[in-house]
Amino acid sequence: MSVNASAPTAEERAALLRDIGPLPLSGQAWPDWVRILSWVILAVLGVQAVTSAIGAPDALEALPALLAGLCFAALLFVAWHMQTSITTIDERGLRQSWYRRREVAWEDVRQARFVPMLFSKRLVIFTYSGRPVIFQGGTRELRAAFVKIARVY
Rank of each mutant, 00 (worst) to 15 (best):
L37T: 01
L37M: 05
S38N: 08
W39H: 12
W39S: 12
W39Q: 12
V40H: 08
V40E: 10
V40I: 06
I41A: 13
I41E: 06
I41W: 04
L42W: 01
L42K: 02
L42Q: 04
L42T: 01
A43N: 05
A43Y: 03
V44N: 07
V44W: 04
V44E: 15
L45V: 03
L45F: 05
G46W: 00
G46R: 01
G46S: 07
G46E: 00
G46P: 02
V47M: 08
V47A: 08
Q48H: 09
A49I: 00
A49R: 04
A49W: 03
V50Q: 05
V50I: 09
V50C: 11
V50Y: 02
T51P: 02
T51N: 08
T51Y: 00
T51I: 07
S52H: 08
A53T: 09
A53N: 09
A53P: 05
A53M: 14
I54D: 12
I54A: 15
I54P: 11
I54C: 15
I54V: 14
I54E: 11
I54K: 05
I54F: 12
G55L: 00
A56Y: 07
A56Q: 12
A56E: 15
P57E: 04
P57F: 14
P57D: 09
P57I: 08
P57S: 12
D58H: 01
D58G: 09
D58T: 00
D58K: 00
D58W: 00
A59C: 13
A59G: 15
L60R: 09
L60S: 14
A62F: 15
A62E: 14
A62Q: 10
P64N: 11
P64L: 00
P64M: 06
L66D: 03
L66S: 13
L67R: 01
L67V: 13
L67T: 06
A68T: 08
A68I: 06
G69W: 10
G69N: 05
L70D: 04
C71D: 10
F72Y: 11
F72T: 01
A73H: 00
A73E: 03
A73T: 14
A74P: 02
L76I: 07
L76M: 10
F77E: 04
F77V: 05
F77W: 06
F77Y: 05
V78M: 08
V78L: 14
V78A: 07
V78S: 05
A79F: 06
A79Q: 09
A79R: 11
A79W: 10
A79C: 12
W80Y: 14
W80S: 08
H81A: 07
M82Y: 09
M82H: 09
M82P: 15
M82A: 05
M82I: 09
M82C: 06
M82K: 11
Q83L: 04
Q83F: 01
T84H: 03
T84C: 03
T84F: 03
T84D: 01
